[in-house]
Amino acid sequence: MRKIITEAVFHPMGDGQRFFILHRPSNSTPARGALLHIHAFAEEMNKSRRAVSLAARLLAARGWWVLQHDLLGCGDSSGDFGDATWSAWIQDIDIAFHWLAKRSGSTPTLWGLRTGCLLAIQATEILACKPNLLLWQPVISGRTFLQQFLRLKVAGKVLSEGGQSVSTKELLQTLRSGSSLNVAGYQLSADLALPLEQAEAHLAASRAGKILLCELAMAPGAKGLSPSLTRMADEWRDGGCSISWECVSDLPFWQTQEIAEGQGFRTSTLQLLDQLIE
Protein backbone atom coordinates (compact mmCIF):
# COMPACT_ATOMS: atom_id res chain seq x y z
CA MET A 1 0.00 0.00 0.00
CA ARG A 2 1.29 3.44 -0.86
CA LYS A 3 2.26 5.70 2.01
CA ILE A 4 -0.42 7.87 3.58
CA ILE A 5 -0.27 10.73 6.03
CA THR A 6 -2.60 10.77 9.04
CA GLU A 7 -3.29 13.89 11.09
CA ALA A 8 -5.37 14.14 14.28
CA VAL A 9 -6.86 17.57 15.00
CA PHE A 10 -9.00 18.98 17.80
CA HIS A 11 -10.93 21.66 15.95
CA PRO A 12 -12.08 24.48 18.27
CA MET A 13 -15.81 25.23 18.39
CA GLY A 14 -17.95 27.56 20.48
CA ASP A 15 -18.97 24.70 22.79
CA GLY A 16 -15.59 22.94 22.98
CA GLN A 17 -13.87 21.00 20.23
CA ARG A 18 -14.48 18.37 17.57
CA PHE A 19 -12.11 15.51 16.89
CA PHE A 20 -10.98 15.24 13.27
CA ILE A 21 -8.83 12.50 11.84
CA LEU A 22 -7.57 13.18 8.35
CA HIS A 23 -6.05 10.51 6.14
CA ARG A 24 -4.42 11.86 3.01
CA PRO A 25 -2.13 10.66 0.29
CA SER A 26 1.56 11.36 0.62
CA ASN A 27 2.76 14.35 -1.34
CA SER A 28 4.09 12.12 -4.12
CA THR A 29 0.63 10.65 -4.85
CA PRO A 30 -1.64 12.78 -7.06
CA ALA A 31 -4.82 13.78 -5.21
CA ARG A 32 -8.08 12.49 -6.69
CA GLY A 33 -10.56 14.31 -4.47
CA ALA A 34 -11.90 14.42 -0.92
CA LEU A 35 -14.44 12.52 1.16
CA LEU A 36 -16.10 13.58 4.42
CA HIS A 37 -17.31 10.61 6.44
CA ILE A 38 -20.52 11.02 8.43
CA HIS A 39 -20.68 8.28 10.99
CA ALA A 40 -23.46 5.95 12.08
CA PHE A 41 -25.63 6.31 15.19
CA ALA A 42 -24.72 5.29 18.77
CA GLU A 43 -23.60 1.64 18.96
CA GLU A 44 -23.58 1.32 15.17
CA MET A 45 -20.85 3.97 15.13
CA ASN A 46 -18.74 2.02 17.63
CA LYS A 47 -19.19 -1.23 15.73
CA SER A 48 -18.20 0.39 12.42
CA ARG A 49 -15.09 2.26 13.62
CA ARG A 50 -12.64 -0.31 12.33
CA ALA A 51 -14.31 -0.87 8.94
CA VAL A 52 -14.52 2.89 8.33
CA SER A 53 -10.94 3.49 9.39
CA LEU A 54 -9.65 0.73 7.10
CA ALA A 55 -11.68 2.13 4.22
CA ALA A 56 -10.41 5.67 4.90
CA ARG A 57 -6.80 4.47 4.86
CA LEU A 58 -7.26 2.51 1.65
CA LEU A 59 -8.91 5.48 -0.05
CA ALA A 60 -6.09 7.77 1.09
CA ALA A 61 -3.56 5.35 -0.39
CA ARG A 62 -5.46 5.66 -3.69
CA GLY A 63 -5.23 9.44 -3.66
CA TRP A 64 -8.31 10.58 -1.69
CA TRP A 65 -8.29 13.03 1.22
CA VAL A 66 -10.61 11.43 3.79
CA LEU A 67 -11.82 13.19 6.93
CA GLN A 68 -13.46 11.29 9.76
CA HIS A 69 -14.97 13.64 12.34
CA ASP A 70 -16.78 12.83 15.55
CA LEU A 71 -20.09 14.66 15.84
CA LEU A 72 -21.01 16.51 19.06
CA GLY A 73 -21.29 14.08 21.97
CA CYS A 74 -19.66 11.20 20.06
CA GLY A 75 -16.20 9.67 20.19
CA ASP A 76 -13.49 12.14 21.17
CA SER A 77 -15.46 15.31 20.47
CA SER A 78 -16.85 17.54 23.22
CA GLY A 79 -20.02 16.66 25.09
CA ASP A 80 -21.84 13.49 26.03
CA PHE A 81 -24.31 11.72 23.77
CA GLY A 82 -27.13 13.33 25.75
CA ASP A 83 -25.87 16.78 24.63
CA ALA A 84 -26.17 15.87 20.95
CA THR A 85 -28.88 17.48 18.83
CA TRP A 86 -29.71 16.92 15.18
CA SER A 87 -29.20 20.59 14.32
CA ALA A 88 -25.77 20.66 16.02
CA TRP A 89 -24.76 17.61 13.99
CA ILE A 90 -25.79 19.30 10.73
CA GLN A 91 -23.75 22.33 11.76
CA ASP A 92 -20.77 20.07 12.57
CA ILE A 93 -20.96 18.61 9.05
CA ASP A 94 -21.03 22.10 7.55
CA ILE A 95 -17.89 23.08 9.49
CA ALA A 96 -16.01 19.85 8.73
CA PHE A 97 -17.00 20.10 5.05
CA HIS A 98 -15.52 23.57 4.69
CA TRP A 99 -12.41 22.63 6.67
CA LEU A 100 -11.79 19.67 4.37
CA ALA A 101 -12.59 21.65 1.22
CA LYS A 102 -9.99 24.23 2.20
CA ARG A 103 -7.34 21.67 3.16
CA SER A 104 -7.82 19.44 0.11
CA GLY A 105 -8.59 22.13 -2.44
CA SER A 106 -11.61 20.19 -3.76
CA THR A 107 -15.34 19.88 -3.03
CA PRO A 108 -15.71 16.91 -0.67
CA THR A 109 -18.04 14.02 -1.39
CA LEU A 110 -20.29 13.30 1.61
CA TRP A 111 -19.76 9.68 2.64
CA GLY A 112 -22.54 8.60 4.96
CA LEU A 113 -23.02 5.34 6.81
CA ARG A 114 -26.55 4.32 7.98
CA THR A 115 -28.17 7.41 9.64
CA GLY A 116 -25.08 9.32 8.51
CA CYS A 117 -26.72 9.13 5.07
CA LEU A 118 -29.84 10.92 6.36
CA LEU A 119 -27.56 13.59 7.85
CA ALA A 120 -25.65 13.87 4.56
CA ILE A 121 -28.89 14.32 2.60
CA GLN A 122 -30.12 17.03 4.99
CA ALA A 123 -26.73 18.72 4.96
CA THR A 124 -27.00 19.20 1.18
CA GLU A 125 -29.73 21.76 1.96
CA ILE A 126 -27.33 24.08 3.75
CA LEU A 127 -24.02 23.50 1.97
CA ALA A 128 -23.00 26.29 -0.37
CA CYS A 129 -22.02 23.85 -3.13
CA LYS A 130 -23.45 20.69 -4.62
CA PRO A 131 -21.58 17.65 -3.24
CA ASN A 132 -21.50 14.10 -4.55
CA LEU A 133 -22.85 11.51 -2.15
CA LEU A 134 -21.45 8.09 -1.26
CA LEU A 135 -24.07 6.24 0.77
CA TRP A 136 -23.28 3.02 2.66
CA GLN A 137 -26.34 1.00 3.66
CA PRO A 138 -28.48 4.12 4.03
CA VAL A 139 -31.27 4.38 6.57
CA ILE A 140 -34.11 5.80 4.51
CA SER A 141 -36.69 6.46 7.21
CA GLY A 142 -35.69 8.20 10.42
CA ARG A 143 -39.07 7.25 11.89
CA THR A 144 -38.48 3.52 11.40
CA PHE A 145 -34.90 3.79 12.65
CA LEU A 146 -35.97 5.62 15.82
CA GLN A 147 -38.63 3.02 16.49
CA GLN A 148 -36.01 0.26 16.08
CA PHE A 149 -33.74 2.07 18.53
CA LEU A 150 -36.56 2.49 21.07
CA ARG A 151 -37.46 -1.17 20.61
CA LEU A 152 -34.14 -2.02 22.30
CA LYS A 153 -35.52 -0.44 25.45
CA VAL A 154 -38.88 -2.19 25.09
CA ALA A 155 -37.15 -5.56 24.62
CA GLY A 156 -34.81 -4.85 27.53
CA LYS A 157 -37.81 -4.20 29.81
CA VAL A 158 -39.50 -7.41 28.67
CA LEU A 159 -36.36 -9.43 29.35
CA SER A 160 -35.58 -7.87 32.74
CA GLU A 161 -37.24 -9.81 35.51
CA GLY A 162 -40.04 -7.90 37.21
CA GLY A 163 -39.49 -5.00 34.82
CA GLN A 164 -42.52 -2.91 33.96
CA SER A 165 -43.40 -3.23 30.28
CA VAL A 166 -43.39 -0.13 28.13
CA SER A 167 -44.34 0.50 24.49
CA THR A 168 -42.46 2.42 21.81
CA LYS A 169 -45.51 4.75 21.61
CA GLU A 170 -45.12 5.63 25.29
CA LEU A 171 -41.39 6.22 24.80
CA LEU A 172 -42.11 8.49 21.83
CA GLN A 173 -44.59 10.45 23.95
CA THR A 174 -41.89 10.96 26.59
CA LEU A 175 -39.58 12.36 23.90
CA ARG A 176 -42.37 14.55 22.49
CA SER A 177 -42.91 16.05 25.95
CA GLY A 178 -39.30 17.28 25.70
CA SER A 179 -37.77 14.72 28.10
CA SER A 180 -34.77 12.60 27.27
CA LEU A 181 -34.56 8.80 27.54
CA ASN A 182 -31.80 6.35 28.30
CA VAL A 183 -31.80 3.65 25.62
CA ALA A 184 -29.19 0.88 25.66
CA GLY A 185 -26.82 3.10 27.62
CA TYR A 186 -27.28 6.15 25.38
CA GLN A 187 -29.01 9.27 26.73
CA LEU A 188 -31.26 10.31 23.85
CA SER A 189 -32.44 13.92 23.88
CA ALA A 190 -35.72 15.07 22.37
CA ASP A 191 -33.75 17.51 20.20
CA LEU A 192 -31.90 14.61 18.63
CA ALA A 193 -34.73 12.07 18.46
CA LEU A 194 -37.57 14.22 17.10
CA PRO A 195 -35.71 15.65 14.06
CA LEU A 196 -34.36 12.13 13.41
CA GLU A 197 -37.96 10.90 13.39
CA GLN A 198 -38.80 13.49 10.71
CA ALA A 199 -35.76 12.77 8.54
CA GLU A 200 -36.53 11.01 5.26
CA ALA A 201 -34.24 10.24 2.33
CA HIS A 202 -35.74 12.73 -0.12
CA LEU A 203 -33.26 14.35 -2.45
CA ALA A 204 -33.52 16.82 -5.29
CA ALA A 205 -31.11 16.73 -8.21
CA SER A 206 -30.49 20.44 -7.70
CA ARG A 207 -28.82 19.75 -4.34
CA ALA A 208 -26.50 16.83 -5.08
CA GLY A 209 -24.07 15.75 -7.76
CA LYS A 210 -23.55 12.06 -8.44
CA ILE A 211 -24.93 9.52 -5.97
CA LEU A 212 -23.02 6.33 -5.27
CA LEU A 213 -24.84 3.67 -3.29
CA CYS A 214 -23.54 0.52 -1.56
CA GLU A 215 -26.01 -1.96 -0.11
CA LEU A 216 -25.43 -5.32 1.49
CA ALA A 217 -26.44 -8.16 -0.86
CA MET A 218 -29.01 -10.36 0.83
CA ALA A 219 -27.51 -13.47 -0.77
CA PRO A 220 -24.03 -14.09 -2.17
CA GLY A 221 -23.90 -12.86 -5.74
CA ALA A 222 -27.29 -11.11 -5.57
CA LYS A 223 -27.31 -8.20 -8.00
CA GLY A 224 -30.46 -6.26 -7.16
CA LEU A 225 -31.06 -3.57 -4.55
CA SER A 226 -33.58 -4.30 -1.80
CA PRO A 227 -37.22 -3.34 -2.54
CA SER A 228 -36.95 -0.32 -0.22
CA LEU A 229 -33.76 1.07 -1.80
CA THR A 230 -35.11 0.32 -5.29
CA ARG A 231 -38.07 2.59 -4.53
CA MET A 232 -35.75 5.28 -3.16
CA ALA A 233 -33.40 5.09 -6.16
CA ASP A 234 -36.37 5.23 -8.59
CA GLU A 235 -37.70 8.32 -6.83
CA TRP A 236 -34.32 10.05 -7.00
CA ARG A 237 -33.82 9.09 -10.64
CA ASP A 238 -37.29 10.46 -11.46
CA GLY A 239 -36.17 13.69 -9.79
CA GLY A 240 -33.19 13.90 -12.15
CA CYS A 241 -30.46 12.46 -9.89
CA SER A 242 -27.63 10.37 -11.31
CA ILE A 243 -27.22 7.14 -9.30
CA SER A 244 -24.78 4.24 -9.46
CA TRP A 245 -24.87 1.34 -7.06
CA GLU A 246 -23.15 -1.84 -6.00
CA CYS A 247 -24.55 -4.80 -4.07
CA VAL A 248 -21.90 -5.85 -1.61
CA SER A 249 -21.20 -9.35 -0.35
CA ASP A 250 -20.10 -8.61 3.20
CA LEU A 251 -21.14 -8.73 6.84
CA PRO A 252 -23.26 -5.95 8.36
CA PHE A 253 -20.21 -4.61 10.21
CA TRP A 254 -22.24 -1.85 11.94
CA GLN A 255 -24.13 -4.44 13.97
CA THR A 256 -22.14 -7.70 14.14
CA GLN A 257 -21.17 -8.97 17.59
CA GLU A 258 -17.57 -9.53 16.51
CA ILE A 259 -15.97 -6.52 14.86
CA ALA A 260 -16.08 -7.01 11.08
CA GLU A 261 -13.85 -5.14 8.65
CA GLY A 262 -16.13 -4.28 5.73
CA GLN A 263 -13.78 -5.48 3.02
CA GLY A 264 -16.61 -5.83 0.50
CA PHE A 265 -17.73 -2.24 1.06
CA ARG A 266 -14.14 -0.98 0.61
CA THR A 267 -13.68 -2.84 -2.66
CA SER A 268 -17.06 -1.76 -4.08
CA THR A 269 -16.39 1.82 -3.07
CA LEU A 270 -13.12 1.96 -5.00
CA GLN A 271 -14.99 0.84 -8.12
CA LEU A 272 -17.78 3.38 -7.61
CA LEU A 273 -15.39 6.25 -6.89
CA ASP A 274 -13.71 5.78 -10.25
CA GLN A 275 -16.90 7.26 -11.69
CA LEU A 276 -16.23 10.56 -9.92
CA ILE A 277 -12.93 11.01 -11.70
CA GLU A 278 -13.28 12.86 -14.93
Binding site: V139, I140, S141, R143, T144, Q147, V154, S167, T168, K169, M218, S226, P227, S228, R231
Partner: peptide
Protein backbone atom coordinates in the same frame (compact mmCIF):
# COMPACT_ATOMS: atom_id res chain seq x y z
CA UNK B 1 -35.17 -2.19 6.30
CA UNK B 2 -35.42 -4.53 3.35
CA UNK B 3 -39.06 -3.92 2.51
CA UNK B 4 -39.47 -0.39 3.86
CA UNK B 5 -42.46 -0.92 6.13
CA UNK B 6 -42.79 -0.33 9.84
CA UNK B 7 -43.96 -2.90 12.39
CA UNK B 8 -45.88 -1.56 15.39
CA UNK B 9 -45.56 -3.08 18.88
Amino acid sequence: ERFGFQVED
